[in-house]
Amino acid sequence: MKALSKYFINGLIVITPMVFTVFVVMQIFSVAEGLLGRHLPIHFPGVGLIAAILLILLVGWLSSLWILKSILNYIDRLVGSIPVVKFIYNSVKQLSAAVFESQQLFKHAVLVPYPHPGVKALGFVLPTLTEPLAKNFTEEYVCVFVPMSLNMTAGFNIMVPKRDIIPLDVTGESALQYVLTAGAVMPRGNE
């Protein structure tokens, strides 16, 4: 019975990531096909996804033109003036910019004393503190995001004295895997 239990757990470990990945990719294809595929004059499998990618590229190219930059800035100001919508729009816009433009997000894994001295938690160094924050400290502080295990959407932004940070020589990807698996997968070194 013990062997069956071990084989079952091993099977779950092998199958779960594959099934989850296939499910997410299939959902993306399905949504793209459902939204765009049925409204296009040509139809073949994958046309919705191709159309979505082309639409994103077209919008990206158009947004780089001077006149459209002005229009987009006007729309930003207009949406930014609506009380509740402003908060949601600005939050999503800043998060999108941070994720899509910053190649350094979740790259620098560190150990920090958290939740109290003597204990170390894995975290990720965030961009340099801005002047309004930095001026409140007598020494150099660094902002570190300490994610919660199994849930990357939650965590804590903490300000830590630079002297208390222990840089890790691990890949950002393996540090994220460590957090997402609650420590079951240990971080691998940079090679």
Rank of each mutant, 00 (worst) to 15 (best):
Ile15Ser: 14
Val185Ala: 06
Val125His: 00
Glu131Met: 05
Leu111Ile: 01
Val85Trp: 12
Asn73Trp: 11
Pro127Ser: 06
Met18Lys: 05
Leu111Asn: 02
Gly34Asp: 09
Gln104Phe: 04
Ile15Gly: 10
Leu126Met: 15
Tyr7Thr: 13
Trp66Val: 08
Ala52Thr: 09
Glu173Lys: 11
Lys86Glu: 08
Lys107His: 00
Phe106Asp: 04
Phe23Glu: 09
Phe87Gln: 15
Glu191Trp: 10
Tyr89Ser: 00
Trp66Asp: 05
Ile88Gly: 03
Ile158Trp: 01
Tyr7Pro: 07
Lys135Gly: 02
Ile165His: 09
Ile75Val: 15
Ile82Gly: 02
Gln94Cys: 01
His39Leu: 15
Val185Pro: 04
Ser96Val: 01
Lys162Glu: 14
Tyr7Arg: 14
Pro161Trp: 07
Met148Leu: 14
Arg38Leu: 01
Gly183Leu: 02
Leu36Cys: 00
Leu72Cys: 05
Leu72Glu: 02
Leu168Ser: 03
Gln94Phe: 00
Val31Cys: 01
Met1Tyr: 12
Leu133Ala: 08
Ile82Glu: 03
Ala182Asn: 15
Lys2Val: 14
Ser96Gln: 04
Pro17Cys: 02
Leu58Phe: 15
Cys143Asp: 11
Leu78Glu: 07
Leu36Tyr: 02
Met186Thr: 13
Val79Lys: 00
Ala182Cys: 08
Arg188Pro: 04
Arg163Met: 13
Gly11Arg: 08
Leu40Ile: 05
Ala52Gly: 04
Asn190Tyr: 06
Ser64Trp: 08
Val25Leu: 11
Val14Trp: 12
His116Tyr: 12
Asn157Thr: 12
Pro115Arg: 07
Thr138Leu: 08
Leu35Ser: 09
Thr16Met: 03
Phe106Leu: 10
Ala134Asp: 12
Pro147Met: 05
Gly46Ser: 07
Ser96Trp: 02
Ser70Gly: 15
Arg188Ser: 13
Ile28Cys: 08
His43Trp: 13
Val59Pro: 06
Gln103Phe: 08
Lys69His: 14
Tyr141Ile: 00
Ile165Pro: 04
Val170Arg: 02
Gly189Glu: 14
Ala154Ser: 15
Leu168Asp: 06
Gln177Pro: 01
Met148Asp: 14
Gln103His: 14
Ile75Trp: 10
Ile88Met: 10
Tyr141Met: 00
Ile75Met: 13
Leu68Ile: 15
Lys107Arg: 03
Leu57Arg: 11
Leu95His: 06
Gln94Val: 02
Gly155Asp: 03
Ile50Arg: 10
Leu180Ala: 09
Pro41Trp: 10
Leu111Ala: 00
Lys86Leu: 01
Leu105Arg: 00
Ser102Thr: 01
Leu95Met: 13
Glu33Met: 03
Arg77Met: 14
Val79Gln: 01
Ala175Gly: 04
Gly155Cys: 05
Glu131Val: 05
Glu33Leu: 01
Pro113His: 04
Phe156Glu: 14
Ile82Tyr: 02
Leu126Lys: 11
Cys143Thr: 13
Ala184Cys: 08
Val14Cys: 13
Ala121Gln: 10
Phe124Tyr: 11
Val112Met: 02
Leu126Val: 03
Ile42Ser: 14
Ser149His: 14
Ile9Cys: 07
Leu95Pro: 03
His43Leu: 06
Leu176Glu: 07
Trp61Glu: 12
Met152Ala: 10
Val59Met: 12
Val144Asp: 09
Met148Tyr: 13
Ser96Leu: 00
Ser5Tyr: 15
Pro161Leu: 08
Gly11Glu: 08
Val22Pro: 06
Leu4Asp: 08
Phe87Tyr: 14
Ala32Asp: 03
Ser70Lys: 15
Val146Lys: 07
Gly189Asp: 11
Ile166Phe: 08
Pro127Asp: 10
Val84Pro: 06
